[in-house]
Simulated scan of single mutants.
Amino acid sequence: MFYEPMLLETRAEAFDSAAHIYEPKIDGHRLQLHLSGGQVRLFTRHKNDCTRQYPELWNVPTEAEELVLDGEVASVDPETGIFDFERVMERFQLKKADRIHGAAERRPVNFVVFDILQLNGQDLRGLPLMDRKRILADVLRPNEYFTLISFVDGRGRDLFEAISARKWEGIVGKVKGSSYVGRRSPDWLKIIRWEYHDVFIAGYRKSELGWLVYVQEEGRLRPAGIVELGVTIAAARAFYGVSKQLVVGEKGDFVYLEPKIQARVKTRNWTKAGMLRQPAFVEFIL
Rank of each mutant, 00 (worst) to 15 (best):
R91C: 00
G38K: 13
A234R: 04
I135A: 02
I226R: 10
E283K: 07
P128I: 04
N143C: 04
R183W: 11
A224M: 06
W188D: 05
G219S: 06
V181M: 05
L31T: 00
R134E: 13
Q262G: 02
A18T: 10
P279C: 03
R125H: 03
P186F: 02
Y22P: 09
G203V: 08
V40G: 01
P186A: 01
E13K: 11
I116P: 00
E228P: 09
V73M: 04
K167V: 10
N59S: 15
Q39E: 09
R11C: 06
E79T: 10
E66T: 07
D115N: 06
Y204T: 03
L276F: 15
L257W: 05
H197C: 12
Y54H: 03
P5Y: 01
L229A: 07
A236W: 15
L129M: 09
D16T: 08
I226P: 15
S75K: 06
R237P: 09
H29L: 15
E13W: 05
Y180I: 00
S17V: 11
L129K: 03
R155L: 11
K190F: 01
L286R: 02
N143P: 12
L129Y: 10
P279L: 08
K260G: 12
D198P: 05
Q93D: 00
L209K: 12
R107F: 15
E90A: 13
E79H: 08
G252Q: 02
T51L: 10
L127C: 10
A263M: 05
L67N: 12
Y240S: 03
A12C: 02
L119P: 14
R166S: 15
K266N: 02
V247D: 08
D153R: 09
L246S: 11
T44N: 10
R141N: 02
I149A: 10
P24S: 01
I21D: 08
N110R: 15
E161I: 09
G252M: 10
A64Y: 00
G156H: 08
L159Y: 08
K266E: 07
R52C: 09
V76T: 13
R222H: 09
A12R: 13
I26C: 02
G219Y: 13
Y22M: 07
R107D: 13
D253E: 14
I149S: 12
W168V: 01
R157T: 10
I201G: 09
E79N: 07
A97Q: 13
W270F: 04
E283N: 06
E105G: 12
L189I: 04
